[in-house]
Amino acid sequence: MEKSHSELGQIIVGVARDPLGLMGLIIVGVIVFCAIFAYWIVPYDPIAMDIKSRLQGPSSAHLLGTDQLGRDTFSRVIAGGQVALKVALPAVFGAMAIGLTLGMIAGYGPKWLDNLLMLFFDTIRSFPTVMFALAVVALIGPSLQTVVFVVMATSIPTYGRVARTQTLTLRNSEFILAERSMGASMARILGVHMLPNIIGVLAVLAAMDIPTVIALEAGLSFLGLGVKPPTPSWGALLKDGYSLIRQTPWLVVGGGLPIILATLGFTFLGESLRDVVDPKLRKQR
């Protein structure tokens, strides 16, 4: 166990050495910190209305002003980050776990199963995400779980395909043949020998996917398909700000800036992670 810890430490050190990686690490760190401790950070209750002080600009009382119902924008931004991560993390990790499992089965299993799973992936991919989201929302109603489900379902094929391709390349490699000739079972080959070869690539893919998912959640909320109104979300903030842009620009800033920052932060982190984890580059160090 201690070995994998030191490896994780090595990866973090490697990312921190890269200036962009360090920036990504800091941004993601701040976002995650704010999301975890949102309850203690927010100066006001993010859903408490105060009609008397509506649509204010930034002041010492309200750092980013207030919205049309007098809610504190800064508090809503912080709480919105929590919602964004609550959607992004389970969706991405769920999609990765399911995609990885199905992809490895497709890559290692018999040809007919491979064809069946690929058909399944292609079917999912052929739906435009927003259309799919509309259909699902119409069916089970807008909520945090719906967004997680939609995002997860639409990203499974991406992970599945990558995992399948990796498995296909590995299954004919000599060390897998060597494993088979040593009497290893299919479960052992997939779990002990293939998984460590594939997981790095997928982890990087996941890190790069998180900003997409955050943007997707914001987009769905912007369209009114995401989380329900009183719940703060960056997309919902942006939507309110969009209709009230003539009265105050601060809502758009409050909704847009965190989306941009989160996207940049996770992308930097993901790219830097890819460089550090890539086994070809790692061997040279």
Partner: peptide
Amino acid sequence: RDLRGADISIVFQDPMQTHNPVLT
């Protein structure tokens, strides 16, 4: 499967390919 690696085992041609690169 019980025989492989227990009663019969094999050494392959190319030693650069026969080990899993990500495990010690």
